[in-house]
Nucleic acid binder design. Structure first.
Lengths: 157, 157
DNA sequence: AATCAATTCATACTTTAGTATGAATGGTTT
DNA sequence: AAACCATTCATACTAAAGTATGAATTGATT
């Protein structure tokens, strides 16, 4: 709490005035009940209670909010789309040639050997040999397995 | 809450001093105007100050901390792999049966018809008929095409 | 009870896939 | 120049895939 803050000043002044008024009141009461001397303890107790309440009120009014920081971690999912990153390493690891890779790609698109041959302007036997070497290098037995592995290795899309 | 953080204590003290000064001022005014002084009033004032302090202390001690929530957004990249959402609609659209779908799934994993038969404890001809009907329904000619379409339609993973 | 769809199996057949082997060409490396 | 690799093509063969047709069974529906 900054004591210098205007509001607090105001409140302090108000408090002072209230205090003065209270004291005057007490004085008045004292004069009024001057005779009753035994009431002193009660009077003191009343003052104690009154000013305890005043203190509590002051404290609550003037004290700074006690900050209890609550950190809430908000999870933001970053939807990283599975972009195709061509895996050169896998290709060189298996020693695949360009044509073999090309044939594998077309195989994965569901083309028959004949269709691949037509597409690449090659003969059917050529595609077959490419296929065979491909399977040998990838250590698979069928084109479906080759396609599966090729997609897993990200050497075809 | 930290009981009376130093700053609050300090401010409370300052308040006490101010209060004391005010009281002294009043007292001085009282003396100045030749009003009869009673030790009782000083006593009452002391009680007042004391219990005001007690009230402040009590308030600080017992008041609940005012919670100020501070939300900190923490970006957490969740590597959400493209989750497979099975496409029921496509299946019903093409009128595929359970077995046909099952066979297609195994085809996509690179299994031969014989291997699929072994896996499902069926005969080779059964797998072939499932395959044929599958291709007919999907309007494809080869298993590789069926697998491609199946993955595109999200009816197999 | 009859019908229908799904499932299973079989047999016979055609087509495609895949293997084995050999060979020719062109470019690169040693 | 020789060796090597990638590429191409061919032939002959085996294996697998796919088609056509028919039939039996089962569970659900009409």
């Amino acid at each position: 709490m900054t004591l210098g803050n205007l509001n607090n000043y105001k409140e302090t002044l108000i408090y002072g005035v209230v205090l003065a008024v209270l004291l005057v009141l007490l004085r008045w009461l004292e004069l009024r009940f001057l005779i009753i001397t035994h009431a002193f303890e009660i009077y003191a107790a009343a003052i104690a209670v009154l000013f305890t309440g005043l203190g509590i009120w002051l404290a609550l009014k003037l004290s700074k909010p006690k900050i209890q920081t609550q950190i809430i971690e908000k999870v933001i999912e970053v939807p990283q789309q599975p972009q195709f990153v061509f895996n050169k390493q896998a290709v060189s690891k298996f020693g695949l040639s360009c044509r073999e890779l090309e044939v594998l790609q077309l195989m994965s698109e569901g083309l028959s050997n004949q269709e691949i041959a037509d597409h690449l302007f090659l003969s059917l036997p050529t595609i077959k040999t490419h296929g065979s070497r491909l399977f040998e290098k990838l250590e698979v037995r069928r084109r479906t397995q080759a396609v599966e592995l090729g997609k897993k290795l990200a050497i075809i899309r």
